[in-house]
Amino acid sequence: MRDDDAAAPLGYQYDLSIPPGSRVGGLASWHATDPSPMNCLSSATPMDLPRTIASTGWDGGSGSWKPLEEQDLPTHQSAGPPQVTVGRWGELNVFTCPEDPGHPHRWSIQ
């Protein structure tokens, strides 16, 4: 096997960490600011992250997260399939209270 045929080694930031793009559940990415506790303003309970809405699906380093049918597309053409712009091409994290869904939601833009 030639060296150029070998698979690239997995990296933490792009392959094993928080996946890029819009997603349901998981953890919030705090790549634009320091992490901030998201506690319910009514009950002081740590909030859940049920939804992240992202401006792009992936970036140049996120090849392992690209759908198989889009692996051959150039990065700049396939990086924005959601066709949504959040802030300055960021992510909108929507947090909800696990104790009472009627409590006000909180959000952050990263």
Rank of each mutant, 00 (worst) to 15 (best):
M1Q: 11
M1A: 14
R2S: 14
D3I: 14
D4F: 10
D4L: 07
D4G: 07
D4H: 12
D4Q: 11
D5S: 08
D5F: 13
A6I: 14
A7Q: 13
A7I: 11
A7R: 15
A8R: 15
A8M: 12
G11H: 15
Y14E: 08
D15C: 03
S17R: 06
S17C: 11
P20R: 08
P20I: 02
P20Y: 01
P20F: 03
G21W: 02
G21K: 04
G21H: 00
S22V: 06
R23C: 00
R23Q: 03
V24N: 04
V24A: 13
G25A: 03
G26N: 04
A28V: 02
A28R: 02
W30V: 00
H31T: 02
A32M: 07
T33S: 12
D34Y: 01
P35N: 03
P35Y: 00
S36D: 12
P37T: 02
N39T: 07
C40N: 05
C40W: 01
L41W: 03
S42E: 10
S43E: 08
S43P: 02
A44D: 13
A44L: 06
T45Q: 09
M47K: 01
D48I: 00
L49Y: 00
L49F: 01
P50L: 07
R51T: 08
T52E: 01
I53E: 01
I53L: 13
I53C: 00
A54R: 02
A54H: 01
A54Q: 02
G57S: 11
W58Q: 04
W58P: 01
D59I: 02
G60R: 12
G61H: 07
G61D: 10
S62M: 12
W65R: 12
W65A: 10
P67E: 07
L68R: 09
L68Y: 04
L68M: 09
L68I: 09
E69G: 04
E70F: 05
E70V: 01
Q71H: 03
Q71G: 01
Q71K: 11
D72R: 05
L73A: 09
T75P: 06
T75Q: 04
H76E: 12
H76M: 12
Q77I: 11
S78D: 09
G80C: 10
P81H: 10
P82C: 07
V84W: 08
T85A: 12
R88D: 13
R88W: 05
W89R: 06
G90V: 01
N93M: 12
V94D: 00
P98A: 12
D100S: 12
P101Y: 05
P101H: 09
G102H: 15
P104E: 14
R106A: 15
R106V: 00
R106G: 05
R106C: 03
W107D: 15
S108D: 11
I109M: 09
I109F: 06
Q110H: 06
Q110N: 15
